[in-house]
């Protein structure tokens, strides 16, 4: 049971997906107020402008990876409920999300019924059914990557060099190199090609 009607911020960089999800929520779940955001910057400014109860958040945006803004959102709006809605396999981020206390994850590849079910649970503040247990094996080599490492991986796959990554994430070049080294170690990849192949295999794409 909920006290106030959910006010939803829907963040995805694709207009069609925003329209689809909006229709889906309004048709299947309830006539809630839904606002759009198409970038990380827009998410931050919307949250600052208005009060929201729920945030449906994609991971990959044109202006960055949502992992970069999630800690800020968490500390600025502790009561905001967040659902990650992404193409990325959930088990990779499971550890990272647990650390920042996010328990809702919905894969874009899920079928319609699952999408409706998870969204209903999320908006009605019910417990999330943990899909990751039933769906995927536990041997994913990306599972152990930290939030920072996942962010670096995101930019590496986008063809960014160490210098560009350090500029974008405001990190020292040395830190970026160390993080890159750790990604290679944790995923047991000898080189970039092996890493890319592994990403393709585990459906990580940015």
């Amino acid at each position: 049971m909920q006290l106030i009607k959910p006010k939803i911020l829907l963040a995805d960089d694709h207009g069609m997906i925003r329209s689809g999800i909006t229709l889906l929520i309004q048709m299947e779940i309830g006539d809630y107020s839904i606002t759009d955001a198409d970038s990380c910057a827009k998410v931050m400014s919307e949250l600052n402008k208005k009060f929201y109860t729920h945030l449906i958040l994609d991971l990959i945006f044109a202006d960055g990876n949502a992992l970069e803004i999630l800690p800020n959102i968490k500390s600025l709006y502790p009561s905001l409920k967040i659902l990650i809605f992404s193409m990325q396999p959930s088990e990779i981020h499971a550890e990272v999300f647990k650390k920042i206390n996010i328990s809702y994850f919905l894969s874009k590849t899920s079928d319609n019924d699952t999408v409706v079910k998870v969204l209903t649970n999320f908006l009605n503040n019910d417990k999330n059914i943990d899909q990751s247990n039933s769906m995927v094996s536990g041997v994913n080599p990306f599972k152990t990557l930290s939030s920072r490492e996942l962010q670096i991986l995101h930019y590496m796959l986008n063809g960014f060099g160490t210098k560009q990554i350090s500029d974008t994430l405001n990190l020292k070049m040395n830190s970026v190199s160390t993080l890159k080294k750790r990604i290679y170690q944790k995923t047991d990849s000898a080189n970039f090609k092996a890493l890319i192949d592994l990403c393709t295999l585990y459906k990580i794409n940015y």
Binding site: M16, S19, G20, L23
Partner: peptide, 19 residues
């Protein structure tokens, strides 16, 4: 390409279908 096809074709098609 995989990412582009996933992100810009498959997923939008899915929600296009839904809409």
């Amino acid at each position: 390409l995989i990412s582009v096809i996933n992100h810009d074709i498959i997923t939008p098609l899915k929600f296009m279908h839904y809409a």
